[in-house]
């Protein structure tokens, strides 16, 4: 059983992806070049970019055991008003700055869904958003 925690600073694009990078290194040691490694780090990276793009601050809490990788990305931010709408491919509220970074095309949540076995999103407008990502090691 491994446990990791990382802080994410809203607006700090130079650090976006740091947690994903650290997790990737750890997973390479733990499970080798398993397909699941790429899937979960791609999902986490998109989640990290979302926190940096939309929230004030956030946290990544990752737990790895022999069966699954469970990651909670929790943030303090504006929240998501309509999760179903946000899940639609192409829908985005990202700023021009986020688009200049190569994101903000309304693909992030879809990329998270496609790269995980379970994706749960809970959000409260004005408070923040919790995203749970699960991949099974099979």
């Amino acid at each position: 059983m491994m446990h990791f925690e990382f802080d994410i600073e809203g607006g700090d694009f130079t650090r976006a992806g740091f947690a994903s990078s650290q997790l990737k290194r750890a997973l390479k040691q733990l499970v080798g070049n398993h397909k699941v490694t790429k899937r979960i780090v791609v999902a986490l990276y998109e989640a990290e970019v979302n926190v940096v793009a939309h929230a004030y601050k956030g946290k990544v809490i990752a737990d790895i055991d022999t069966e699954r990788i469970t990651i909670l990305v929790t943030d303090e931010g504006p929240g998501i008003e309509d999760i179903e709408l946000a899940m639609q491919s192409g829908y985005s509220t990202a700023s021009e700055q986020v688009r200049e970074m190569g994101f903000g095309a309304g693909m992030g949540l879809m990329n998270m869904k496609n790269n995980t076995d379970k994706l749960e999103i809970n959000s409260e407008v004005g408070k923040g958003t919790d995203v749970k990502l699960v991949c099974y090691l099979k």
Binding site: F13, G17, K24, K38, V42, Y45, E100, M101, G102
Partner: peptide, 15 residues
């Protein structure tokens, strides 16, 4: 043509 840190990060995640 996107020359920023996220291009490198993205390549890292995508092998």
């Amino acid at each position: 043509g996107l020359a920023n840190l996220q291009a490198i990060r993205t390549a890292e995640m995508s092998d």
